[in-house]
Structures are given as C-alpha cells and as structure tokens.
Amino acid sequence: MIIRGRVWLFGDNIDTDLILPGKYLILTDPNELAKHAFENIIEGFYSKISKGDIIVAGKNFGCGSSREHAPIALKYAGIGAIVAKSFSRIFFRNAINIGLPVVPSKEARDLLREGELITINLEDGYIEEENGRRIAIEKYPEFLLEILKDGGLIENLKRKLGRLNHGKNL
C-alpha cells in the first residue's frame, strides 16, 4: 500500500474531542462528520485540506473517547494517513478498521516539515521525503495489513463471513 500526500503537522495528545466535538456524535453520515473535523482548533480545516494529505503528529494521537466518528471524520475529509510518535489504542484500532492507515514513527514528527510531499510505503516499511530521504517504519502484522488492503474491517468481514455463510442477509 502506497500513500502520497502533503504533511500537516500536529502536536502531542491530540484528543478525540479536538478531532470531532461530542455534539456531532449524533451524526452518522460520514460526509457530514467530515465537515466538522478539527473545527474547534483549525478554522475551515475541511476546506483547507486536499485529498490524500497526511497528518504527522506527536505522541498519543487520538486519546480520549472510543468514538469511531473521529477517524471517520478525518478519512472522509480526505486524510490519506496519520503518522504519529504514538497512538491511543482505541483510535489505532478504529482507524485500521475503517481503512485509514495509522503509522507509528518515533522520528517522523521531528524530521518532516509542514506542507512537504511524502510517500508512505506500508509493505516495505518506510516514509520517503521529496529529496529521497527515507524514514524506516515498523511493518504491520500480516492480518492488520490485510484489513487495510481490504479498505477496512467491513470488507474483510464480508469476505470471511461470505465464506462461512453466516447468519442471514438483511
């Protein structure tokens, strides 16, 4: 899986209330959620980003609530991947489950610059800058990469449950 986009730098402990305020949890349409991503800290974030842009943050990204609305809002706003020094565990799982690549990297935040174009290669495990410099990243366990390649757990489950002929169709 290869992701290419421009860098948006963020700090430490970016919480789910910043990513998506609680009052929007009653929304279930991903495109509506997207409009409110980061609205309390970056005015017009939704209209400022381009499809494929990459968030590069400090430690503990996505801390706080289990709201899947938060990664959904970022994905549908057009974010292609999130690189961070570390992730809160529920956010990490949720992002993978909806097919939004989350990439732990201790170095990236300190090496990358705002607005630069980077390429992330998940299979081979690196982030490449425009000047060709590479930052190594840890590879995913195979089953997680499979979920991401399927575009998320939904497609992954469909494949698996389809084989098992589970339950009954809606």
């Binding site: 289990s66 899947e68 990664p71 529920i90 949720n94 489950n97 089953f143 757990l153 589970h166």
Partner: peptide, 18 residues
C-alpha cells in the same frame, strides 16, 4: 476494554475479537 463501532460489529457477528 473499550472498542469502536466497527470492532463491535465484528464482535456482534462473530463473538470474537483480536
């Protein structure tokens, strides 16, 4: 432990989670 809604859907259908 807390999980998100997609994980929860997987649990509801299969009774298991990684």
């Amino acid at each position: 432990t807390g999980i998100g809604s997609t994980d929860m859907a997987a649990v509801i259908l299969t009774g298991e989670l990684w």
